[in-house]
């Protein structure tokens, strides 16, 4: 890129930064105000109260429990993705016959199937299987809908491994399984961490499947807890926003420590 600064673009970017950052700042500030204090100073005023009671309150209305449920869903979804996607990507990249390329196209098509479009039959199937209002019922479709993108990302990174390496292993008599564990997996670590982060994000932020497939408070995940909190205690804005912040913390931590994987994963969705 050129070294000459582009002032017009810089100003535009700073305005956009304000549009992004001010709401986040207002949110964070409000969570440390009392409800009465927030009511008095409003969203933009300088706070004159300070309290942690909103976070304590969020815990007491069940967010600690929702948090645990969401962790269970997220870990399970990641586990399913990590078990299923690498062999599939390996086959897509290395076994280039008609059937596998058909499967790959199927997954590409799957990218476009909106979850809303199939939510009614999924509700039917999950109820039929007796998994309604059960975290397993949320985990299974969430994992299934993470597969297409993860396959796309991982097969992209497995494709970067030069065929000569596989051929060298084959000449030495290695079976496909051995080449998978000794070559494909170790050399696609970047792609693997990307799909882990990406599927975790999908599961953590998922809303539609929990909304439709669970009902009771004991099986509520955090996004649904937010929605529920809003319908029940919508006027307690500091309390509500504290719950929103709580739902964001793990994701922000991931962003801090695994930014590369995350950004690459999201770019993978765009197909670069």
């Amino acid at each position: 890129m050129k070294a000459r600064p582009n002032y017009a673009a810089g100003v535009g970017a700073v305005i956009w930064l304000a549009i992004i950052a001010i709401p986040l700042y207002v949110m964070l500030q409000a969570t440390f105000e009392t409800q009465a204090g927030y009511g008095k100073t409003g969203a933009l005023g300088i706070p004159n109260t300070f309290t942690f009671e909103n976070y304590v309150n969020a815990f007491s209305v069940g967010f600690g429990h929702y948090f645990v449920n969401t962790v269970i869903v997220t870990v399970s979804v990641v586990a399913i993705v990590v078990v299923l996607v690498p062999p599939l990507s390996y086959a897509v990249v290395r076994n280039q016959n008609r059937a596998t390329s058909l499967v790959f196209r199927l997954f590409l098509l799957g990218l476009a199937i909106p979850a809303q479009a199939v939510i009614v039959p999924i509700f039917y199937l999950i109820s039929l299987a007796g998994l309604y209002d059960n975290l397993i019922g949320v985990i299974l479709p969430t994992a299934a809908f993470a597969l297409p993108i993860c396959t796309l990302i991982l097969s992209g990174s497995m494709r970067d491994i030069t065929p000569e390496l596989y051929e060298a292993m084959a000449v030495d008599g290695a079976s496909p399984a051995r080449a998978f564990f000794r070559l494909a997996i170790p050399l696609s670590k970047g792609g693997l961490s990307t799909i882990i982060v990406f599927s975790a994000l999908q599961a953590w932020n998922g809303f539609l499947f929990p909304l439709i497939l669970t009902q009771s408070d004991s099986n509520r995940v955090i996004t649904l807890g937010l929605f529920n909190f809003q319908t029940q205690y919508g006027v307690n804005i500091p309390g509500l926003l504290a719950a929103v912040v709580m739902s964001m913390v793990p994701v922000l931590l991931v962003y801090l420590f695994a930014r590369r994987s995350l950004v690459q994963g999201l770019m993978g969705v765009g197909g670069k």
Partner: peptide, 26 residues
């Protein structure tokens, strides 16, 4: 040393069950 189609089966079945079958169902 190329993997067989079997490697692609588990993920395909799983995805089919939750995305393709429901699509037909809908």
């Amino acid at each position: 040393g190329r993997p067989g189609f079997a490697w692609a089966v588990p993920a395909t079945v799983f995805f089919g069950l939750f995305a393709i079958v429901p699509l037909v169902f809908v």
